[in-house]
Design a protein around this nucleic acid. Structure first.
Lengths: 126, 126
DNA sequence: CTATTATATAGGCGAACATTTATATAAAGG
DNA sequence: CCTTTATATAAATGTTCGCCTATATAATAG
């Protein structure tokens, strides 16, 4: 009848409320967790891991990335557009080419550090 | 007629082959990239970021996590099952409770480091 | 101009995913 | 036993996602 408590009320008097409070202190808020999750989602696909690893070394054009990864050009462009919209990568035009690079903003720097931890990509910027 | 080259052959003679070769040296292989992407995917959801942040501080039972995050118990159990199957978390039974904790294996340690970088979770293990 | 090359975008398809509702197991208490 | 509580699992749903094919834009060359 009372639908305010559809699920176990384990917290009511079973759980150490002090413990819960202490945990909550270190618990990231919804916004912080969402920001972090977004950052991780950029790297949650193996193609993007490889793309961003390459872009952390030097700027590259779309066709070269497609060539190296042996993937279709639209597939690469699709990933790059998403990463562009999230302000993770940028590009400059050089003739017909679009030269992409990993941004030097906070997102880009964090991604460099995350890659260094996982795929062991040291910072190799020229 | 020749379908071996459906996409631009930019790499054929336009691109600096030496550059491409140098990049390839630092490019993570498909397996390494997939492993890294899998790790990032564990953290690509804000609920899991919060769950794993809590579990990096101390072990907790399911109902307490559901209570703190204000989410349904099945939703929490679902995430924990996935993380369990990937060998990221484990649990021990204590009465009716299931006390989960972040594993001390390589995946768990890497996740601690990734969380430290993004949500600023220092290592607070007792 | 026309042709070619590099890139971007649109639409669609199939797979993966996060959550919910409902049900099942399991432990404890009365 | 029977009830309650803690947790797990299953089925269903709506959404997101990665890639494809096809087409559009843009730049260069001839």
């Amino acid at each position: 009848m009372d639908d305010t408590a559809r699920y176990p009320l384990c917290g009511e008097d079973h759980i150490d409320k002090l413990h819960e409070q202490e945990i909550s202190t270190y618990l990231p808020g919804e916004d912080g967790a969402a920001d972090a999750a977004a950052l991780f989602s950029y790297l949650s696909d193996s193609t993007r891991v490889r793309l961003l690893s390459m872009l952390s070394v030097s700027e590259m054009c779309v066709c070269e990335m497609a060539d190296i990864l042996n993937m279709s050009q639209p597939a690469i462009s699709h990933h790059l557009r998403v990463l562009r919209q999230c302000d993770v990568v940028s590009f400059r035009k050089n003739g017909q080419r679009a030269l992409y690079s990993l941004n030097n903003n906070e997102a880009g720097e964090t991604i460099r550090r995350l890659l260094a931890i996982t795929v062991g990509n040291e910072d190799r910027r020229a």
